[in-house]
Amino acid sequence: MTTTTATTPAKYWNGGKSPFNVEYGKLMMWYFLMSDAFTFGAFLISYGTTRFATTGWPNANEVFSSYPFKPEGSSPAPLIFVSIMTFILIISSVTMVLAVHAGHNMDKKGVVKYLILTILGGLAFLGCQAWEWTHLFHEGAWWGRNPFPNSDGTISTTNFTNFFFTITGFHGFHVFSGVVINVVMLIMALFNKFEQRGHYLMIEKAGLYWHFVDLVWVFVFTCFYLI
């Protein structure tokens, strides 16, 4: 490696500059996200092993089949509501990309506009989650309580709800932190902090975090609702 870099003009690894051409904060964010990925990985693998070591498991299509203001007696709507939630979160990732892009162009107006949309998306997702949790709670589900039978009709262990609330809760906490971070970014943008610095790099870091949280949701969604 030393010999190749010594002959090429860009001596990325030779000291005096960042080998990846990024400032330290972004590098730190990447390592933090790797670390966080291990936290979620550990949760999801724990969930998977417990589930496969258990003889029966509730059917997600039956558990998650409601939505707000659903008319009494109407036919179940499996996974409709969570699909909308997921869609909202993914759209908020798109608006985040647009905010970062506007930052590259030093377009303050664009940054503000798309950050607000991203924050709204995050809040909408959290609202949906709050509704879903309340709904499940009223059906008798909570940590340590599971009213849903296994798909074969036998009595289920409580680990379905235990893992569901723990992992979606932990993810929701991440979304909440992301919203807080985005609000801080928005305030800083409104007060021209980034204009003064001459760059919107901080938005990029917030964006990395936001995309990560979205990506994690895809896995959580798959594990709890689809499989």
Partner: peptide
């Protein structure tokens, strides 16, 4: 975690001129 992230990026990003990884 706070310490570790700092150690990693300091080593990667803040080496003085000529201080290649090797």
């Amino acid at each position: 975690l706070l310490g570790g992230l700092n150690y990693i990026v300091t080593i990667l990003n803040m080496r003085t001129k000529g201080m290649s990884m090797t």
